[in-house]
Amino acid sequence: MIEIDNLRVFYGAGSDRFEAVRGVTLSIRRGETYGLVGESGSGKSSVLNAIAGRHTDWTGHIRINASSVGPARRSRAEKAMLQIVFQDPYGAIHPKHTVGASIAEPLEIHRRPDREKAVERLLERVGLPPQFRYRFPHQISGGQRQRVSIARALALEAPILLLDEPTSALDVSVQSEVLNLLQDLKEERDLTYLMVSHDMAVVAHMCDRIGVMQGGDLIEEASREQLISGNLEQPYSQELREAALGLA
């Protein structure tokens, strides 16, 4: 569903040009949940942003649903293939738009019909009451805001969701609700997830496979079983795993 070949991502220009991702190759099957883990500066979010088309200074090949996308501006059909859910739901939703308007926005941009009904259905699907469409982001809790972000990401029925630390800003009890919702949606709609996270425990819970990033390189790929049993090759991957266990 997502194939990346020798992806290199750059920031800055001239002598300040910095290579944040240094040749990453990976592929994610349809219906799979793939977790990219690493610390700040490892390049995990840069990979996600290149796939999403948010960052254009990259080389290599990215194929989404078997068709190549380039760094240049994408067509509407290409954009409708994937959606992102961000870490901070307050920053991701317009503070002066109502919840309903935020969810309807992608539908308007893509000129989809029956938007009123669609917003209603989406709210219901993410477990929010219908009257929430008239609320503003500051009038709802962080967990509810993240549900709104998810509803918005689902609006175009994109088959791929890119999840950038989707629960890092949430309390444990709220995190479990959001992770459960994401799991249900995936099964129901046969979605493909790419999840970026620093938390190995969350990744082990959600993902079928993981890739560990360090300093712009993909240093190891492992299955969920390997991650749980600790059967990892790289010492750095082990270190991340132990930190998630609370050791360190």
């Binding site: 009890s173 992770l179 799991q183 819970h205």
Partner: peptide, 20 residues
């Protein structure tokens, strides 16, 4: 108890997290 059940854990994987 609810918090512990809601917490994803590497050493105790489970299919589904409990909701508090």
């Amino acid at each position: 108890r609810g918090l512990l059940e809601a917490l994803p854990r590497l050493d105790r994987p489970r299919k589904r997290l409990a909701v508090l």
